[in-house]
């Protein structure tokens, strides 16, 4: 072996399933290193998202009712649910791709990889719909951010008891039943603080789902690269390990969403009452 091909370069072999880079002792060592490496990488990813979940939990704890209110009003549970289904299905197709690769059924590998990519693109499509709605409503944090709490807005325009129905708050509704009159005046600046809280909520929403979306896109890119390399019979993807690694990563991306969806979309105001008795 020459010095030039020493570090990290693969060694060609007649049997691609036995090829390994020269700094390893044997093929098995290389495979195991990849797997341990991937899992370690995923641990760092968990800590990455973990920090964001921590920040989110802190703010949910500070304004429990309000954040879930914002979530309920502005996040589309149905679209989120559809996305959950899409991503779970993509995990299934990814698993099938890995299994096909292990069994060396190349045609099925292509099929399931493309299916996974298609599902991932569907997921991103739905996300695009959600994001663009928020963009149009100026709910993207930053200089253009503009938020008026639903209740406050209605109050400024609608009179009397109707206020109550759009307000959505049981406390106020209760008082309305007792015929209490509310003076009708424009609510100057009343939305400021809730706008700030909404901005924090949407900040965390965009950072968390955005980071997740970036992971989805990276996964798609990796799969596309593998498909192209398979097409050109590159020895680097001659066996199932790259696909298995991608599969591990893809399942992780899926799992992150499984935590994101309930945390962000299914935040229910009553949870607060449930927790505080």
């Amino acid at each position: 072996m020459s010095v030039e091909t020493l570090h990290g370069e693969p060694v060609q072999s007649d049997d691609p399933h036995q090829a390994f880079a020269v700094h390893y002792k044997e093929r098995k060592q290389q495979d195991e290193s990849y797997i341990v490496g991937m899992w370690t990488f995923l641990v760092t990813e968990i800590m990455f998202f973990g920090a964001l979940f921590l920040a989110y939990i802190v703010f949910r704890n500070i304004w429990p009712g309000e954040l879930s209110e914002i979530s309920r009003e502005h996040l589309n549970v149905k679209l989120g649910f559809i996305n959950t289904l899409i991503l779970l299905t993509s995990s299934l197709t990814m698993a099938m791709a890995v299994q096909s690769a292990q069994r060396k059924i190349e045609g099925r590998v292509y099929f399931f990889m493309f299916a996974t990519i298609a599902l991932a693109l569907c997921f991103m499509g739905v996300k695009f719909v959600e994001y663009s709605k928020k963009y149009n409503e100026n709910h993207v944090p930053g200089p253009l951010f503009h938020y008026v709490a639903e209740g406050a807005e209605t109050k400024a325009t609608v009179a009397g008891v109707e206020v109550v129905k759009t307000e959505g708050s049981t406390e106020v509704a209760h008082e309305a039943e007792h015929g209490r009159k509310f003076s009708l005046e424009p609510v100057k600046g009343s939305a400021t603080s809730s706008a700030q809280h909404a901005e924090i909520f949407f900040s965390l929403y965009f950072i968390m789902t955005g980071l997740h979306g970036i992971h989805v896109i990276l996964g798609v890119l990796v799969m596309l690269i593998i498909i192209v390399m398979m097409w050109f019979k590159s020895p680097l993807v001659a066996d199932f390990m790259p696909i298995e690694m991608t599969g591990l990563y893809w399942h992780f991306v899926d799992i992150v969403w499984i935590f994101l969806y309930p945390a962000l979309y299914l935040a229910h105001p009553d949870l607060q009452k449930f927790l505080h008795g």
Partner: peptide, 30 residues
């Protein structure tokens, strides 16, 4: 929202500066 808060210094301050964060039961964010 059902919470019960102690009206201490921090409570007073936040309810003067940003009164609509925490609204006393029975009142509106006016």
């Amino acid at each position: 929202n059902g919470e019960v808060l102690l009206a201490d210094r921090d409570y007073m301050r936040s309810n003067i500066l940003t009164p609509n964060d925490k609204i006393t039961a029975g009142y509106e964010a006016t």
